[in-house]
Design a protein around this nucleic acid. Structure first.
Lengths: 333, 333
DNA sequence: CTCGTGTGTGTAAGCGCTTCCACTGCCCCG
DNA sequence: CGGGGCAGTGGAAGCGCTTACACACACGAG
């Protein structure tokens, strides 16, 4: 913003740099007259303190980072939004790092780590070994959408209860043949499938094995093509994007939703409401998730010792038409 | 990442800090033996150079920022993704700043400016005065989704041609009564409406005045409720989210799309493909937009003088079913 | 008229790095 | 065999700030 330094301001104002600093940060007594002179010099030179100088002297960055695998879906974007909002509120800039399939992730993360006072890391983005390394380095770290790792805190949204409620709802519809789309061992999703399996078991319904696929529309489409020929009553999907893909596959196979097969998602992204048919799903408080992570991280940075606690935010079952016919009153747009 | 400094490494390796620095950055002759000793010391202490120290000495941040109004829609998220990807490729971290409706934006932007080597700024996010201030401060700046401001470069996607093509297509459908949803004077959108107006004029069709609304589903819904009672043949929308909102409003009013009224969007976000009916729209190369901005910014940072040039990326007309019936062959999923 | 007690200000020591410059050997060419 | 050149290294000066510490001075209390 400006090329002038505190020295030039000091010279122009006829005082020492210490005084300039004190005047600018209100960090010590400065006479009104001096303050005035400094103020004038600052304006004349359009002086803005160098962030680098400040940070080096203060020993803090006043910035924190967030690491996520991708930003293509609405999921991460929403969480990021909530995160940035709260971080800004707390006076911290935010650095982002998307790992994608990039190689050299560890190096990039380490670079990021040197630029921030703390880090938020999404679910399975980083290996546990890497997380341990981060924790041991003393960098405050908060995990998102998974349970805490030693030396960190975590924030996620409720999975088991909502998954159970969703399964119960589907069973009430009369669905018996279940299929599950999406699911390597990601903490979040596996928690849901576990609850679904338990619920189905209690009702004496066969428990399907989840079919793995990328959490994208394309991934869901592929999964749909594999699952639908077996004529399931319902395909429960790891997230809404997968569900949208399954819907596409169903259309391709001339299957009617929910007539021939029901489909459910998870997250309640915008497209879920606009899908044809509108998607029954579970709403995650995405922004709140990000915001909560920012606050927890701030505490850690402030010096609170990590307790390996996982904070769990509530989710809502959102019943729409993709899971089967309802009396209109029950539907929600 | 590590609390050790270059001094400790130097002491442990039995050399001077200058040598450590040279060994680590390959910036001068170092004997194999010395290099080895340094390497060992680095590993033993888990030394990672302090970014602050490096940046202060080098006089650069190796980071750049991006300023956008919001991240709620897919639009900004996609562009951001492309931006981050290329920035990472170029070895730069990225700091994000969402302005939202927050007050104190100028101050926040100035703070951001002190943390980066260059800035990408979305369309109407910042006032022209603010842009001038940035440019004059010498901070490399690239504008997105609008034309260049003095002292900057700009990247946007093509608007006029696609808007004209879309209008022509709609006219070919037999639509005559046009309505336009969304449109304060944003550079991008106003360019489209101008082209639409010209095209309609050439065909002797009355030119409607755009109805302003926020670029969100809710905004589109409101706009739809206001516009649809006038029985337009088609509602052209500023972006896909607005179009989705108009579709919702049409449902509410029991209007069939495209039977009673056609609707078009802009951007081709994911939900457009999954909407009911699927949305005719214009595809913007969102990621490429972000990537191009990152590259241009990198040149500016490397010292290339700004030329106030606007780079224009091509767009594609995407015909789906929301604009009227087509022979199946013409449709695209 | 002293001795605290503040207020207001300057000096200088960092913060952690990069890099210019100087210096020491050593090798090789004439 | 002398000297130029270069590989290898260290000293030290920044980069732009914050802040502990010292100091000067004024003022009211004893």
């Amino acid at each position: 913003m400006s090329d002038s330094t505190i020295y030039e301001v000091a010279r122009l104002a006829g005082v020492s740099i210490a005084t300039v600093s004190r005047a600018l940060r209100n960090t010590g007594p400065v006479s009104a007259a001096t303050r005035e002179k400094v103020q004038r010099a600052v304006e004349q030179l359009k002086f803005t303190p160098s962030r680098l100088g400040v940070s080096l002297a203060e020993g803090r960055h006043a910035a924190n980072g967030i690491v996520f695998p991708d930003l293509s879906g609405p999921y991460f974007a929403e969480v990021l939004l909530g995160y940035e909002e709260v971080a800004a509120e707390l006076g911290r800039s935010v650095l982002i790092l998307s790992t994608r399939d990039r190689d050299g992730v560890p190096a990039t993360v380490k670079d990021l780590a040197t630029r921030v006072d703390g880090l938020v890391v999404f679910g399975q983005t980083l290996s546990d070994a890497m997380l341990t390394e981060l924790a041991e380095s003393g960098l405050p770290t908060v995990l998102l959408a998974r349970d805490a790792h030693p030396g960190t805190e975590a924030v996620r949204s409720e999975n088991g209860g909502a998954a159970e409620a969703l399964a119960v709802h589907l069973i009430a519809h009369g669905h018996r043949a279940f299929a599950l789309a999406g699911g390597h061992d990601e903490g979040d999703v596996s928690q849901r499938w576990t609850a679904v399996a338990r619920t189905l078991g209690l009702h004496g319904i066969p428990v399907p094995r989840p079919v793995e696929c990328p959490y994208t529309v394309e991934g869901g489409y592929e999964a749909g093509l594999r699952l639908l020929p077996d004529n399931p009553d319902v395909v429960m999907c790891a997230d809404d994007q997968v569900a949208l893909g399954v819907i596409l596959a169903a259309e391709e196979l001339n299957l009617k939703i929910p007539g021939d097969v029901a489909v459910t998602g998870w997250d309640d992204i915008m497209a879920a409401r606009h899908a044809r048919p509108a998607l029954t799903t579970v709403r995650q408080p995405l922004r709140e998730l990000g915001g909560a992570a920012a606050r927890v991280l701030d505490e850690l940075i402030a010096g609170v010792e990590p307790t390996n606690t996982t904070r769990v935010l509530a989710t809502d079952l959102v019943i729409r038409s993709s899971c089967g016919p309802h009396p209109p009153a029950q539907e929600e747009q």
